[in-house]
Amino acid sequence: MRKFLINLLLFFVPLIVIYISLEVINRKIPNEYSAKIKNFEDEINNIEVLVFGSSHALRAVNPEFIDYYTYNMAMVSQTLQLDYAVFEKYKEELKNLKVLVLTISHFTLSTGLNEGEIANRISYYHHFYGLPLISRLKVDNYSVLPAIGYKRATWGFLNYFLKFKVSNVKTNKYGFMGEGGFLAKDSISFVKVGKEAANRHEDHSYDFNENIKLLKKMIDWSKKHNIKVVLIEVPKTNEYERNLDQDKAALIDSTLDILQKSNSNVSYFDFTNHYKNKSFFRNADHLNEAGAREFSLLLNTKISEFIKE
């Protein structure tokens, strides 16, 4: 037994040392989340317009084209619960906030915290945003490596020492992401990716109760602090939209409309079918940089009008 335990220990010691080294180095290397929260915290006193949402918003709202100091806090697969958790943590520090932009995607009102694509990314919010979101006994509670991916983390580790490239951050200093992600090159790709993305985002759930409660909390707090709330649906292609549950899409629209009518500080804009031109899209459900520029200028007009009301 003694020999077995000693051999086992000797076998595992180098592995544990390697794991800890990978963990330490990968926490040092800037990633989308650490960069985004750092820029956000640095500029928190200046932020006048704050944008939340998923990758749809991340790639659609470029703050550089908005007249007010805007920060894009949207992230890939970010759910409304995460928008709410981040807002709750920082809301008292947002002294200059005038408008809160909440982007509603097809899944936003029905998806739970640990459901769908966000499940593997939750630990980023835990480790880099400091949100106490993980309750189960998981490696993610203690290590950031599973979320990064062990293969990517190992390359990150090697690059760090070989000094090839130590950062993979693609977002600009205002939190907008223009590069990266899947690029649809032809109409076949748009059709294929549109269907795949719609399938991924479709849960056929009509139960919005929990998420509406969160929306109302954010709206009520904003009302109390004289902050306006803009609810938006960003442009998507028909190749994506037509594959979604149309009844659910209609219910989302009517729900947001009711929120607008029942709250004086809320304005709702549905830009879903605003652009027919494919040259504005990176793929079926994301704008490209040119599309984001056009859309951000449009949003700027709407926000400016709303602030002046």
Binding site: F11, L15, V139, P146, Y150, K151, T154
Partner: peptide
């Protein structure tokens, strides 16, 4: 033998799905 073990730990680590 040990090189074999470490190789497979490395493969599990790099290519394993830990979901």
């Amino acid at each position: 033998r040990y090189l074999f073990y470490y190789l497979f730990v490395l493969i599990i680590f790099l290519y394993g799905m830990f979901n």
